[in-house]
Structures are given as C-alpha cells and as structure tokens.
Design a protein around this nucleic acid. Sequence first.
DNA 1: TTGTACGCGTTATCAT
DNA 2: ATGATAACGCGTACAA
Lengths: 344, 344
Amino acid sequence: MTKEKRVTLDDVASLAGVSAITVSRALRQPDVVSEKVRARVESAVRRLGYVPNPAARQLASGRSNVIGVVIPSVTNNVFADVLRGIYDGVGEAGYEIQLANTRYAPSLEENALRLFASQKPAGVIVTGFDQSDASADLLAGLACPVVQIMDHGPTPAQMSIGFSHFDAAVAATRHLIDQGYTRLGFLGARMDPRTQKRFNGFRQTAMLAGVYSERRVVTTPEASSVTKGAALLSDLLAIAPEVDAVFCNNDDLALGAVFEARRRRLSVPGELGICGFNDLEMMAAAEPPVTSVRTPRLEMGRRAIEAVLTSLAAGTRDTAAIDLGFEIVARESTARASTLLFHK
Amino acid sequence: MTKEKRVTLDDVASLAGVSAITVSRALRQPDVVSEKVRARVESAVRRLGYVPNPAARQLASGRSNVIGVVIPSVTNNVFADVLRGIYDGVGEAGYEIQLANTRYAPSLEENALRLFASQKPAGVIVTGFDQSDASADLLAGLACPVVQIMDHGPTPAQMSIGFSHFDAAVAATRHLIDQGYTRLGFLGARMDPRTQKRFNGFRQTAMLAGVYSERRVVTTPEASSVTKGAALLSDLLAIAPEVDAVFCNNDDLALGAVFEARRRRLSVPGELGICGFNDLEMMAAAEPPVTSVRTPRLEMGRRAIEAVLTSLAAGTRDTAAIDLGFEIVARESTARASTLLFHK
DNA sequence: TTGTACGCGTTATCAT
DNA sequence: ATGATAACGCGTACAA
C-alpha cells in the first residue's frame, strides 16, 4: 500500500528551506538560482524522490509536454522506422510522444489534430503535405513547432523534412530504362498522395522515354501487402504479358512480385525486372536481391524530433523545407544480362 | 491570431444558464442530470466548441486519461499488429495511448513504468511476464487496470492476454517431426525471454523425439532480420550440414532461411524444411509458402485495451490469465514429398 | 437534481 | 536572487 501522499514542490521546498517557487525555478532554470540553493534543492529532490506533476505544470503554464505525432498507419514498416527515429530522438528530454493513427483517413487526421490542438502541445509532427483544408487550418493555428515529414515541397506549414517522391520515382524509372527495359509496368496499392506522386514520376519518365502504356498500370485502393504484390503482378501479366519490368509502389509489392515471378518460372531480372520502393532490410537479403529506392526513414524521424526540440529550446519558429534525398540501390532484380556479366 | 481565451466549463455554464459543476456532470454522467439541462448544456458545448482540458481534469481528479503501453520494439511487425489492435480498440473512448519503447532493456522498462506510475495512469499494458523485480513492484503498486500481453502464465500481476510460447514451439516442433524430419535445427535471434521459451519448447520436444543436437542450434543476441536469417542458416549448414529442417525463432529469420536455401539450390521442403513463427502476412505469399505459427497479435492488442476499458468502466480489478492460443499453419516449406503428393 | 466551497500542484506576475 | 499571491480549469465533498 503505497498510500503515501504524493511528493510535491512544497515538500521539497520545506526540506530545502526555500520556497516552492524557488524549487520550481531551480529545476527549470538552474542558472537563475544561486549555486548553494540549487545544490540544496537537488539533494532534497533526490531524497524525496520528487517527480513533477505534468498535469499541474500544464495547467499552470498553459503548455504541455506532449509532442503529437500523426501517421497514417502503425502496421507499416516505413512508419515503424520513422517512429523509432522519433522515440530514439526524444530520449529522456522530458517530452511525451502522443501517437495518432489516421488510417489514411483525412477525417481521422482532423480529429487527431483537433485533439492535439486542444492540448496546447509542445510540438507536432505530421505526415505529408496533403492535409485537408480543416487540418491545414489546425496546423496553421498551432503556436508550437510543426514538422511535416515523409515528403518534400515548397510550402511547408513551418518545417518539413522529407524527400521528393516524384523525383525518387523518376530516378527509379530511369534506372529501369537505363538497364534496357522497354515495356515498363507499375504496381500500386493504397494510392495515397505520396504513392500518387510516385506514380506521376513514373508515368512522366516512362512516357518521355516512350516506354509507357496505361495497360501496364495496375493498382488497387486496398492496403499493400506481399500477397497483393503477387496478385497485382498476376493481373498485369494477364493484361499485358509483354511487360518486361515493374516499378512497385513499395517493397511489399515488389517482394510479392518476386515470389509470383518465381512461381511462374519467370526469370528475374532476365524476363522481368523488379524495382521496389523504400529499401526495407529484406530487399538486400532476398533471392535475387531486389533493387529499391532507399528512403531516409529513420533519419526523417530523428531529424523531425530534433527540429522540434531545437526549436523549443531556442524559442524560435523556423521555416524550412529540408530535402533528405533518396538513393537508388541497384541490385540483381533489375540487372539485365549485359550488366550481370560485369559481376560474374 | 486565435488569441481568444480558452472556452471553459464556466463559459458553457453561463451560456446554458447552469453552474459549472452541472456542465461537468452533464458531460461525464449524462444520466444524472435532467433531460432539459442536458440538452441545453450539449447545445452550449457545441456552440462554444468546448473541449475539456485534460490537465485540469487530471489535476482535480487525481487520475489521468493516459493508458501506458510498454513494448520492447516499435520496428517489429509483431508489435505493429498489437499496436494496431490497441489503437483500434481505444477509438474515441477519450483515453490517450502513451507508448514506451524499451528496446528490450529492463532498465528502460523500469524508467517507463516509473514515469507512468507518476502520472496516475488510467491503465497500463505491458509486454510479457519477465519484468525485473523493480518493474514488477511498480506494476504491483499501480491502482489502475494492468494487462500483460504476448505471453501466458499462471501468475499475472492482474490480467494477462497471450499464449504459451513454449506450447507453440512444442507444436511447431511436433509438426516438423510429423513431417518426417529427423535432424532438426534451431535459428534464433535476440533471445529475449519469449524467444527463450520457444527454444525451450523446441529443445524439449526434439530431445524427446531423439532428433535434437546442440550443434544444430545457432543463435545471435542481435536483433532478428531477414539478412540474419540467411546468415544463421549459412552458419548452421557449415557446422551441421546434416540438418534437414529448421525451426526459426520468427518469420524474418525463416524468410532469410528460405532465400539462403534458394541461393544454395537447396530444395525446400525436400532437402530442408523451414518453419517460422508468427505467421506474418508475407509467409503465405512466399514461394514456397512458408509454414509458421499463427499468433493472435491483433487480437491480443484489441482484447488488452478492451480489458482495460471494461475494467475502468466497471470499476473492478479482475484477475485472469487468458490464453488466446496459436495455430500451426502448415504450408509447403515443411511438406515433405509424401505429403505433397496429396496436394498435387 | 443542482449548487457552493475548496483544493489539486504548478507557474506567472509582481515584489522585495 | 528569492518570495508572496493569485491564477490555471476542473472534480470532490458536502449541502440544499
């Protein structure tokens, strides 16, 4: 029965022989109290095991220690890495991460932002640039640091840290073309805004090179999965058997395509080139290893929380759109015979 | 500039022509105020856009609306599914999920629980039974509903919802034996408590059947990954080339083993049987489809949060250890020729 | 069923 | 550099 009353500032104050507000200051602005007092306070805090009450702090100050994070999915490896970066980055900084899962629904995103806004958050990290008008207004109304992640564009609400999905898709498509593939296909699932941007990059690039056909674009609004990747490739092969390479929306689909190709005894990369997106860990370990676009997921998370903390510490509100870029990681799944010769 | 003062209970009260406490009650216990008053309050709330201040609520009541969730990893598909269940389950219930990532470190788990404890959480969901003494004390000291997930055992702190990792491993091992494999190996990574239990189930079962050899156990303390699965299988084959089936710690390792086997032109399931653990979505889509142990991840999350909410609503503190079980999903990767004949 | 008085633990403001 | 006082917005306890 730990029915002992909670240790408060007053308890610490009387033990240290000072007033409560001095203890409060000693904890929050150590350099504004005298060295002697600070030492006494610190020792009292330790002896009593004092832990600040966030609710009282928030009520009195009008600010909370909550950093809201809005992501569209918790069951997506991509966001898992971002989250890890965020959690690693906050560390013991005294802030709490509050996660909101929008399931790719703008209305849920609005709900989440409204809730966050009502809590006077210390900071907000939100996925992408494609908020609804209501959500955008909520973001604009926030007095705290706001970071948009996972995308890059010219007009962040405040700060953004991401990369251009369009450019990444352009580069991936160029890679396929450079490898000599001439009848490119696209496999897409979910088709959220960023996926759409990737598709646009693919289409434009493939069109310019004269290797595009709308027949070879197969998408589904459903969530992506390995199973779906296999199914989409099946559909594509049924419609357009001439396809000689596919750019997949993401690595799950790409892996599914690899499996499906294998089931059909289609040689990869000989008869079919396969390129994924994100470069999840498994792509390098696959057989054959799968070409993908490496995206800076961990770093986006880390940099985003870092930006929030820095901004909080400095008391400034910067505006900046940071492009972390991407990298085409060419592997065997898109290495046509001519290229392979070098490796053998 | 939304510098307007925050809308408070008093504002709503004066608009509705009642006292603040009545508004408070109308919101929290609608059935205790008269119908007329309730209607007036509700309309006033809407007109003013009133949103309760959680900090004030918490400070006044001594309780918070935070449900703490302690998991060892955010970049693990297993926990992603559990989290989804939890987030789906809370819905708009008015509680906030606070996630703590222990990275499999007992000390971080203690920190997290200490932090939660200081916040008088509404509930706590924690992974597994194998807390440190300090963590166990913290759990025991909590006045709120506590649910342990992901494991099953006789002595939950309060409630537990999970399954027996030992039993699951026993069943998987039996399956391999039933398929006619006689030189079983084990691939393990991370070796956290639940992984250890799985290994114990494997060892005991394989020993009893006379198909165990310590040479064929290859593990690493590092995190599991597909790459690691391939590497571990390589190591195993170097040490014990006679191995004819491997039980993998989890699906990532199993997938890596599948790729490595393919690289070595080892036929699966003919020359090598491969069994994973968790039955992630990709296992069914793989080529060959991979046998695994289906674990109720989503349901554990959903049931855990449900248990917390129910307990909160009822004001009771039940004690119960719920076993959700598991299921061996036999697929081609462990189907020896004789069995395959039936399918062909 | 509704209201009054007070306190929750902290910080802002203004003094000293 | 330190302190006194008054909020912050809500819920509890008790009263009506």
